[in-house]
Simulated scan of single mutants.
Amino acid sequence: LKTPGTLTVHADQPLYEPWFIDNDPTNGEGFESALVYALAEEMGFTRDQVVWGYTAFNASYAPGPKPFDFYITEVSITEPRKEAVAFSDGYYSTPFVIIAPDDSPVQEATSLADLRQYRFGTLVNSSYASYITETIQPEPDISVYNTNADALQALANEQVDVNVESLQIAEEVIADQFPELGIVGILPGPGTELGMVFELDSPLVPYVNQALANLKADGTLDDLIAEWLPAPPDYPDIAE
């Protein structure tokens, strides 16, 4: 532990619903906040022993020492990232979706081939960027941004044509921040599996994994998913 007797957990800013509520990780509301407190209790920590802090999303999985015991903000588990940090077992899998302005011709796209003509914007060094580069392979250069908020703002400002997001984040930002955007469809593939991030070779990983396994076995994780991540409406599938 970074501080004896304390579980230090970091997250990004801003925080999106339904993962966190009111941009406040300490309130225990939202799927990831509630999950952290459930894990902490399973490991023998009281609520007061959980201390939250901020680390930028990209910095969470960069090489080097970390100021947190673990980090949680919808971080995708990927093989390249495993070279720099350790991950917990996955706690949720989410599909990727295409989002674009409601009045954009992108809304008529039904396949990856239809999407390749458009300008993509995305978060630098993210699983979204990898998916765009490796799977969609657009013809124009991809515009990358230091934060996901910047990438979304560029889309709203029509500096780019289209963006890739996880389903829940797309629904949240459309509902609360960018009502002029809409979900085009669900992209092919498994999407992404989310995990907690640890300093490389952290001895805490097996303890968190055991706590997570216990929450899976006793139904707590399923209950949290049902409470905070309701089943989405049907969206069209984007063909390969």
Rank of each mutant, 00 (worst) to 15 (best):
R81A: 06
N209A: 02
V97P: 05
S166E: 15
V97M: 13
E139H: 15
S111G: 12
Q177I: 00
V36Y: 00
A59Y: 06
F31W: 06
D12P: 00
R119W: 02
E171L: 14
A34Y: 03
D150N: 08
L152S: 06
N148T: 06
A213F: 04
G219A: 07
G64E: 07
F198L: 04
D48E: 15
Q153G: 01
D69W: 06
V144Q: 05
F57T: 02
A86F: 05
L1D: 00
P232G: 12
Q13E: 09
D89C: 06
L194K: 00
L181K: 11
I186L: 13
N23W: 01
T46E: 14
V36M: 04
G185W: 14
N146L: 13
D24S: 01
E32H: 07
I136V: 13
M43K: 01
K66T: 13
F45L: 00
T220Q: 11
N148W: 05
D150K: 02
F96L: 12
R119N: 04
K2D: 11
P233K: 13
Q117E: 08
E32W: 09
T3F: 00
D234W: 13
T73A: 12
A239T: 14
A11N: 10
V173T: 07
Q49S: 15
A149L: 13
D103R: 00
V50H: 02
I186V: 15
H10R: 00
R116L: 01
A129T: 05
L200V: 14
G121V: 04
E172W: 08
W52K: 00
A40M: 01
S202V: 13
E158W: 03
Q159I: 10
E139D: 13
A59T: 04
P105C: 01
P233Y: 12
E227Q: 11
L181R: 10
A149Q: 10
E199G: 09
S126G: 07
P25S: 01
D69N: 12
S104D: 07
K82W: 10
N209G: 04
G30L: 12
D103P: 11
I225L: 04
G182W: 10
F198W: 04
A156P: 01
K216F: 04
Y92I: 03
D222M: 05
L224W: 01
I98S: 09
L155C: 06
G30C: 10
E172S: 10
A211H: 04
P80R: 06
V50M: 02
Y92E: 05
V208I: 14
G44I: 06
I183A: 10
Y91F: 06
A156S: 13
E172A: 12
G219P: 08
T46K: 00
T26R: 01
L167R: 07
F178M: 13
A231I: 15
S76Y: 05
I238K: 09
G28D: 02
F96T: 09
G90S: 09
Y37M: 05
P65W: 12
Q13D: 06
L204C: 14
V50F: 02
D89H: 08
V162W: 07
D237I: 10
T133Q: 07
F178I: 11
V144G: 03
T94S: 13
P4M: 03
G189C: 07
P101V: 00
G64Y: 10
F96A: 09
Q153S: 05
V208K: 02
L1M: 13
P63S: 08
Y118I: 04
P140M: 02
